[in-house]
Design a protein around this nucleic acid. Structure first.
Length: 580
RNA sequence: GGCCCCGUAGCUCAACGGAUAGAGCGUCCCCCUCCUAAGGGGAAGGUUGCAGGUUCAAGUCCUGCCGGGGUCGCCA
């Protein structure tokens, strides 16, 4: 189903025959041999670097290898031409039938076109969002949520067994602050004046929580000391916040498989067990950290604490797991949590963090490396800042929370589909500008619109053909005479479609869902170009007098639509069939 | 100061180690008797921050600088 993979096999086979005939030495490493689309279409359909890669290990001139390889490859009826070019590229031209057959493949596979078993069922855990349960999700969380979700969909599409997981930070001091803030709203619900002291959360999203507390406890907590109510209110408020966060995520179209609680790790011995595991490995010791050089901390004083020898696994300094009062730092339960993931049998872990957690990457990788015996790779994607604009001006607004723009603000204004697509038009480690006006603009300046418009045009053509009484059902289109599609513009369209499985593979291998968004833009561009050529060359229009010709052409654009829908599904974006 | 990310056309950004570094915006020219012009075609625009190195091949990998951002033990 992946033409590029098929051709690479053909190249590898040919090299094998050359080896058998003594033209190449035994035991060559072929892993660097690639078959890829040439940047310049005039170079042919596909190019392989085999001769250049193998020249040195084989002790031969690259052109010599390329010439011999060309002879072998030309025995394959699929390959019409094989020309040596440049420093030793072998440019291949394929029989048009190979490209035309892509339509049949796409139409019979439907939305599964491009799906692969690349991951071979590997169990992958993707942890993302993991926002503190102390308030509604804000813009900063949106990008992480979208990237994590799209990456999960991409990996699942590529044959991985994906688990999406949210780690609830409900074990630290911040949830006590939440409880105190909610308690003030509880007092307010009972007619008292709330005292939102400095350091408490002022957002009015806690007002309903206060009312819910009143409904549950009446006035019974009002005169009680904090020691009496703190734990209960904390639990209650945290649950309310998590409910709100789930709703926020649902608005974005994000669904988690598992919510894991930090607090649940305390008192179970899991943290102690994880630390003990590290201690057994000689990676835990009592020590005093050096103050950071070049940065002056006024209140620095040497302090003995329990440290993790993360430097043994690639970190720059060892990291504290216990505070000086003996309680755990945030890092300790996080170690236990990642240990827990390892023990659950995941083959690979992926964390999506905000860029402000950059300093956390090395120690987390060190911990996972130590606790999995180096067997479970942890990839941490840092998602950079989103800057909001409206009409080119920096945008600051808060309907609900006072000081920040919430996820709901964004989704309500821009819509989930637009938000998701735009958030994926940058790779994760570059900051992103999000302009509320721009993302809703209906022009080619806006990639979401541009891609959706292509799909809408295709559906318009389908309607047109149907109205003309032409059968355009899937089976008919798949069986149409695709051999008619021999115009260079049509073949170019086909080649773009044929790239999709390969693109998915590259994106999945690199954990880079943004590649899908860029590909869809290119695909749409190719389509709009083809559409417009119909203005000048009537033979390139999709709806023709002749029914069989029309069906072949409709089959082509239907295949484009399928790939657009397939790609949008990975991004979690709903395709539109009509612009209004 | 240490660590991490970024630096590509006037602007915003692409480019699995591959050939003559590509799109959009902006500027200039052109295309609707005709499937959605909400679109398309063309022109102009580049020493990929700087200097070395590895490689048949470097925007991409390595080292050192320069510039911007983030982060750095009792926050999570």
């Amino acid at each position: 189903m992946n033409l590029f993979a098929d051709l690479r096999s053909a190249v590898v086979d040919a090299l094998g025959r050359m080896t058998a005939e003594g033209l190449l030495p035994q035991g060559l490493d072929l892993s660097a041999v690639a078959v890829e689309p040439p940047r310049d279409a005039s170079h042919g359909d596909m190019a392989t670097n085999a001769a250049m890669v193998l020249a040195k290990p084989a002790g031969k001139n690259p052109r010599e290898i390329a010439d011999a390889l060309a002879v072998k490859l030309l025995e394959d009826p699929r390959i019409q031409a094989a020309d040596v070019a440049g420093p030793g590229f072998l440019n291949l031209r394929l029989a048009p039938a190979l490209w035309q057959d892509v339509i049949r493949q796409v139409l019979s596979a439907g939305l599964d076109y491009g799906r692969s078993d690349l991951g071979q069922g590997l169990k992958v855990n993707v942890e993302f969002v993991s926002a503190n349960p102390t308030g509604p999700m804000h813009v900063g969380h949106v990008r992480g949520a979208v990237v994590g979700d799209a990456l999960s969909r991409l990996l699942a599409f590529s044959g991985h067994d994906v688990t999406r997981e949210y780690y609830i930070n409900d074990g630290g001091a911040q949830v006590d602050v939440l409880a105190r803030s909610a308690f003030e709203r509880y007092r307010e619900a009972n007619g008292l004046e709330p005292e939102i002291r400095e350091g408490l959360y002022p957002g009015d999203y806690l007002i309903p929580v206060g009312e819910a507390l009143k409904a549950k406890y009446g006035t019974s907590l009002l005169d009680q000391p904090e020691s009496v109510w703190l734990a209960d209110v904390r639990e209650f408020a945290t649950a309310e916040m998590m409910q709100m966060i789930r709703e926020d995520l649902a608005q974005l179209g994000v669904e988690m498989d598992i919510y894991s609680s930090e607090k649940a790790l305390y008192g179970t011995g899991e943290i102690e067990a994880a630390i003990e595991e590290l201690r057994q490995a000689g990676l835990i010791y009592e020590g005093v950290l050096e103050p950071p050089k070049g940065k002056t901390l006024e209140d620095w004083e040497p302090r003995e604490q329990m440290l993790f020898r993360s430097t043994a696994h690639g970190d720059d300094v060892d990291r504290p797991v216990q505070k000086s009062d003996g309680s755990w730092t945030y890092f300790a339960p996080d170690i236990a949590y990642h240990y827990n993931k390892v023990k659950r049998g995941f083959d690979q872990l992926i964390d999506i963090f905000g860029a402000d957690h950059g300093g956390y990457v090395k120690r987390m990788k060190a911990a996972v490396s130590a606790l999995s015996g180096g067997k479970v790779p942890l990839d941490i994607k840092l998602v950079q800042l989103v800057k909001l604009y409206k009409g080119g001006e920096p945008f600051k607004m808060s309907k609900r929370a006072g000081t920040f723009v919430t996820l709901r603000d964004v989704v309500e204004q821009a819509g989930a589909d637009v938000t998701r697509f735009i958030m994926l038009t940058r790779k994760n480690d570059v900051s992103l500008d999000f302009d509320f006006d721009k993302v809703l603009e209906q022009s080619k300046d806006n990639p979401v619109f541009y891609v959706q418009y292509a799909n809408a045009r295709i559906n318009s053509v389908l309607r047109k053909a149907r109205d003309a009484g032409i059968a355009v059902d899937q089976a008919t289109l798949a069986a149409a005479d695709h051999g008619q599609l021999s115009h260079a513009a049509e073949l170019a369209m086909l080649k773009k479609i044929a790239e999709w499985p390969r693109l998915v593979e590259i994106a999945a291998r690199n954990n880079e869902p943004h590649r899908v968004a860029f590909y869809l833009y290119e695909l749409a561009s190719e389509f709009h170009g083809l559409w417009n050529r119909g203005n000048d060359e009537l033979s390139l229009r999709f709806v023709q007098e002749d029914q069989a010709t029309t069906q072949a052409k409709i089959a082509l654009v239907q295949a484009v639509s399928v790939v657009i829908c397939s790609g949008l599904a990975i991004l979690g974006v709903t395709p539109v069939e009509e612009m209004r």
